[in-house]
């Protein structure tokens, strides 16, 4: 399969998600798939920017892929019919933590939470790297969310790939 790995990153400061995306990409290739990294730039400078960039994620053209695996929010908003969510980094609540306690900030926070619930709900499958995140996602989206921990070694990546490609 040709599989896109979608994550967000701050330019010049890629962060942990980029490392997970790279390791997952290597594991997918080792399993005979074609991995397409899709690192999307995210800047959280003010509430309005946050809303606009979530929309930008949604409007991306990501045809030509058999499946996408998204690693967090708002990457999970990409428009693809066969979308797996594997929440390994921040969810919407964590992303929104830096929003100001102002009417505009509150509106942005509420919008983000609704968007996360919507796109979590629509994913073909949903996983979380921790039990805590899985429970939060189950409540937020009223759906099944399995726990799929981050692998500790190269061998364990094969299990992750088997789960995310089934």
């Amino acid at each position: 399969m040709r599989i896109g790995i979608v994550h967000t990153r701050d330019p010049f400061a890629p962060g942990d998600e980029a490392g997970v995306a790279a390791a997952l990409g290597d594991a997918l290739v080792a399993a005979g798939h074609e991995a397409v990294p899709l690192g999307l730039p995210l800047r959280w400078d003010d509430p309005l920017q946050m809303v606009e960039q979530v929309l930008a994620v949604r409007l991306l053209g990501i045809g030509n892929l058999d499946r996408v695996i998204v690693l967090g929010f708002p990457a999970m908003c990409v428009n693809h019919h066969h979308r797996y969510v594997w929440q390994v980094e921040a969810g919407a609540s964590a992303v929104c933590a830096s929003l100001p306690a102002t009417p505009r900030g509150d509106d942005a926070r509420a919008a983000m939470m609704r968007v996360e619930a919507e796109f979590l709900g629509r994913a073909v499958r949903a996983y979380a790297a921790s039990a805590g995140d899985a429970e939060r996602m189950r409540v937020a989206a009223s759906r099944d969310v399995a726990v799929l921990p981050l692998p500790g070694d190269a061998d364990a990546w094969a299990g992750v790939v088997a789960e995310l490609t089934r």
């Binding site: 896109g4 701050d10 330019p11 010049f12 899709l38 730039p41 800047r43 400078d45 920017q49 606009e52 960039q53 929309l55 930008a56 994620v57 949604r58 409007l59 991306l60 053209g61 990501i62 045809g63 030509n64």
Partner: peptide
Amino acid sequence: PVWDAWEELPQQLLGMRLWHLEGA
């Protein structure tokens, strides 16, 4: 990423305008 399906091009162009890279 971009996709060449012509019907989707306007929304993809709009998306490009919505990224905020000014401070990046």
